[in-house]
Simulated assay, not measured.
Amino acid sequence: MKIVVAIDSFKGSLSSYELGQGIEAGVKVVYPEAEVIKVPIADGGEGTVDSLVEGTKGEFIKVTVNNPLMEKIEAKYGIMGDGKTAVIEMAEASGLPLIPVEKRNPMKTTTYGTGELIKDAVLKGCREFIIGLGGSATNDAGLGMLQALGYKFLDENKNELGYGGEILSKVKYIDSKEKLAELNECKFLIACDVDNPFYGPKGAAEIYSRQKGATEDMVKELDKGLEDLAKVIKNELNIDISNLSGAGAAGGLGGGLVAFLDAKLAPGIDMVLEKVGLENELKDADFVITGEGRLDHQTAMGKAPVGVAKIAKKFHIPVIALAGGLTDEAVQTHEKGIDSFFSIINYPIALEDAMKKEVAYKFVKANSEEIFRLIKVCERKFKK
């Protein structure tokens, strides 16, 4: 029996790889000779670096960078097993959890640290990049990232501007004379699962900046700043990102990456599954185990488990999903290729206790064992 485990992390608890280990342990209680293939996955958000690095036998790199308030922190990124593809989650250097609630202010926060991660990877020889967007503390359209890569943004008097969302409306000129030369050799793929435009009622500022600390006045100023910047980009670079789907991701970082680095936006889960070669592993599998921390209506809209199920169904392979929690809307995933799903929680327990690694691992192992005990019963029954 061949079982492929391609499960997203349970955020704040077990990684994709750790879940795979627990599932394998449970399966092998029932089927000791089973071949269990663990394929770490993620949907472009948290866990993407771990999934792609572990899934391709790459390496992790730690580097000192600036957080969104230009304070020194240690962040990591990954280089995949091919030695030339860097995987970066922007939240590692520019994420909301890096800033205390009382200091959150998208007028001040910058993506400079994300640019420092890219620069480090470029200098290490990487020429292909996968950038995961999401969880940002910023609304600077990626200008900070670009400043770290050598770009300068100038006001009407051609004075160099500082950092943060507050400079958006002040940018009148773009100076790229000192940009990192190697960027011309680089290709950027952006894992993006939102379709927000750069600005407007559904844009970066209006939809996301409040959770980053913006007041109502700031929301209006940031939205106007993104609109003004889009005009400058069109005039200076002859690129129109004003209505580009996904340009508003991560505080406009999606738009900045497209405009300045010729990045391509793609659904995160599709990108990850292609890179880890899931389809090739699935061709002769008997079962697929997938899942994520919570199965709900968002799962059915195309998150990691449904991405896995979509490929599995090409080969008519049964798909079982495990989750920490289930909502009533999880039944919608049946229409998307998930044949059966289960919560791993066996008895009433506080969330903080359930999320402890040792507890979650115990639950995952135990429920995997019971699922395959049932499969074995059915196997015996229908062989008669």
Rank of each mutant, 00 (worst) to 15 (best):
E74C: 05
Y77T: 00
E59M: 13
E54I: 02
T48L: 01
V63N: 09
I73Q: 07
D50W: 00
G45F: 04
Y77I: 02
D50K: 03
G47I: 06
G45C: 08
A75N: 13
F60A: 06
K57N: 15
A42T: 04
L52E: 04
D82A: 06
D43L: 07
V63H: 09
G45A: 10
K57H: 14
E74M: 10
N67D: 15
F60W: 11
D50E: 12
K76H: 12
V65H: 06
D43T: 06
F60V: 06
G55V: 09
E46Q: 12
L69C: 09
G45W: 02
G44F: 02
A42W: 05
L69E: 10
G45Q: 03
E74S: 15
G58N: 13
D82P: 03
M70T: 08
E74F: 15
G58D: 07
K57M: 11
D50M: 04
T64E: 13
M70Y: 11
S51G: 10
M70P: 02
K76P: 00
P40A: 07
Y77C: 11
G55W: 01
E59V: 13
T64S: 15
A42K: 10
K72P: 12
D50C: 04
P68H: 07
L52Y: 01
E46L: 05
Y77Q: 04
M70S: 14
I41A: 01
D43V: 08
Y77M: 11
K62D: 14
I61N: 08
E74K: 11
V53K: 01
D43K: 02
T48M: 08
K72H: 12
I41Y: 01
I61F: 05
K57Q: 15
